[in-house]
């Protein structure tokens, strides 16, 4: 046989090698889905991986099971639209591992909506707001005077000490509520 053919055999051996390597290396479930050749190539078991990620935000429906009183009372106020977990944190592991969810009483939490921004093309402009720099003492949490579960200004001014949330937090930090 002519030596001219030898490079061809080398090339064929390379191709065969790659094909053999490929059969072992590419996972069995690697294929094309409904999305077609251009967009569909993937390992099908990876879809399962994404479906099994743990859910952290449980939804206010779960809070209602035990905290019915708080759940129903806030529904009567404008704050009823805010899901519990926005302020109380994701409910995963509670009750159980996490006996008490940490409550965010930071002033910045309230300012997300209530720092005044008079924007004409956004519903933000319709929310009652304050100027964070000039409204009361910027170092005092809003919950000192306002009850987030009953954000009625008239009621609050009459009974400013009824804020169990703030008292809990204050005790923790060695401060007094007043």
């Amino acid at each position: 046989m002519s030596h001219v053919w030898r490079p061809l055999f080398v090339a064929l051996a390379l191709v065969a090698g790659i094909l053999i390597f490929r059969t072992f290396y590419v996972p069995k479930d690697f294929g094309v889905g409904e999305a077609g050749y251009m967009y569909g190539w993937h390992n099908f078991t990876n879809e399962k991986f994404w479906k099994e990620i743990k859910v952290k935000y449980q939804g206010s429906g779960q809070c209602k099971e035990c905290h019915r009183e708080n759940f129903t009372s806030i529904q009567k106020t404008p704050h009823g639209i805010i899901p519990c977990e926005n302020c109380h944190g994701p409910g995963v592991g509670h009750p159980g591992k996490i006996a008490k969810l940490p409550i965010d009483v930071n002033r910045l939490l309230c300012l997300r909506c209530h720092a005044i921004l008079k924007y004409p093309n956004s519903d933000r402009g319709k929310i009652r707001g304050i100027d964070p720099a000039t409204h009361q003492d910027p170092n005092v949490e809003c919950v000192t005077c306002h009850d987030p579960h009953n954000p009625n200004l008239g009621v609050l001014k009459k009974s400013p000490q009824r804020f169990p949330v703030y008292e809990q937090e204050s005790k923790k930090e060695g401060r007094t509520a007043k």
Partner: peptide, 30 residues
């Protein structure tokens, strides 16, 4: 490969958005 009864789409309303950022916070934690 099959086919699905679902085709997920998203709708965002830029008038209703007040820029509170609770969505970003929730997304990052979730």
């Amino acid at each position: 490969a099959g086919s699905s009864d679902y085709k997920w789409v998203f709708l965002a309303d830029t008038q209703k958005c007040v820029g509170c950022g609770f969505c970003v916070k929730a997304c990052k934690l979730e």
